[in-house]
Computed example of a mutant assay.
Amino acid sequence: MAVFFKGDKVEVCSKEEGFLGSYYEAKVVSSLNNNTRYKVRYKNLVEEEDQTQPLVEIVSADEVRPMPPSVIVNRSGGVFNYLEKVDAFDNDGWWAGRVTGKQGLKYYVYFETTGDELAYDASRLRNHIEWRDHHWVSFKKRF
């Protein structure tokens, strides 16, 4: 497992029902319990009681990964292929799905976890990659 330090930018995976498999940008506030847990402050999620304040949460180390390479995140105007696995930015986080079609400038993405198929501009999509064994694994190939 990777070790993170105060100030590191990370993505946190949600394990809550309805949000399973989605990732949210955050910054490490502190490490706890010998780096088995982290206190993080989210970039886009806010406190329920005071929506002007960023949400701060304690999460398990297995829910935290480094930020993906900026080449992947900043892809805009790219070309995505049928059934290619992508991440779509929606509801303040990145959600994994598969491209199911294209109409004009919009790509349709199907999300297995929710059963939804939604349309996105290419600027809101990125190639899906996963953090495994301390390195990024690409899913660029089609299935």
Rank of each mutant, 00 (worst) to 15 (best):
50 D>F: 04
50 D>Q: 04
51 Q>V: 12
55 L>K: 12
56 V>F: 01
56 V>Y: 00
56 V>R: 03
56 V>S: 05
57 E>R: 04
58 I>K: 02
58 I>D: 02
58 I>S: 04
59 V>I: 08
59 V>H: 00
60 S>N: 10
62 D>M: 06
63 E>D: 13
64 V>D: 01
64 V>R: 00
65 R>F: 09
67 M>H: 03
69 P>V: 01
69 P>N: 05
70 S>V: 14
70 S>H: 09
70 S>F: 10
70 S>Y: 08
71 V>D: 11
71 V>Y: 08
71 V>T: 13
72 I>M: 01
73 V>N: 03
74 N>K: 10
74 N>G: 05
76 S>W: 03
76 S>R: 11
77 G>T: 08
77 G>L: 03
78 G>H: 05
79 V>R: 06
79 V>I: 10
80 F>V: 01
80 F>R: 01
80 F>W: 04
81 N>A: 12
82 Y>M: 14
83 L>D: 08
84 E>R: 07
84 E>Q: 15
85 K>C: 07
85 K>T: 13
85 K>Q: 14
87 D>N: 14
89 F>V: 02
89 F>H: 13
90 D>S: 12
90 D>K: 12
90 D>T: 10
91 N>L: 12
91 N>V: 08
92 D>Y: 09
93 G>F: 01
94 W>V: 01
94 W>K: 02
94 W>Y: 08
95 W>Q: 02
98 R>W: 11
98 R>Y: 13
98 R>N: 14
99 V>Q: 09
99 V>C: 09
99 V>K: 06
101 G>T: 05
101 G>I: 04
102 K>P: 03
102 K>H: 12
103 Q>C: 06
104 G>V: 01
104 G>T: 03
104 G>I: 03
106 K>Y: 15
106 K>F: 15
107 Y>Q: 02
109 V>E: 04
109 V>W: 00
110 Y>N: 12
110 Y>F: 15
111 F>C: 02
111 F>H: 03
112 E>D: 12
112 E>R: 13
112 E>C: 07
113 T>H: 11
113 T>P: 02
114 T>E: 06
114 T>H: 04
114 T>W: 05
115 G>Y: 11
116 D>W: 05
116 D>P: 00
116 D>Y: 08
117 E>S: 15
117 E>P: 05
117 E>M: 12
118 L>R: 14
118 L>Q: 09
119 A>H: 06
119 A>I: 10
119 A>V: 12
120 Y>D: 07
122 A>T: 13
122 A>V: 10
123 S>A: 15
123 S>K: 15
123 S>N: 14
127 N>C: 10
128 H>T: 11
129 I>A: 11
129 I>V: 15
130 E>M: 11
130 E>R: 08
130 E>P: 04
131 W>K: 10
131 W>L: 10
132 R>A: 12
133 D>M: 11
133 D>S: 14
134 H>Q: 15
134 H>F: 15
135 H>V: 01
135 H>S: 09
135 H>G: 04
136 W>V: 07
136 W>H: 10
137 V>D: 05
138 S>A: 11
139 F>K: 02
139 F>E: 00
140 K>N: 02
140 K>I: 01
140 K>P: 00
142 R>P: 00
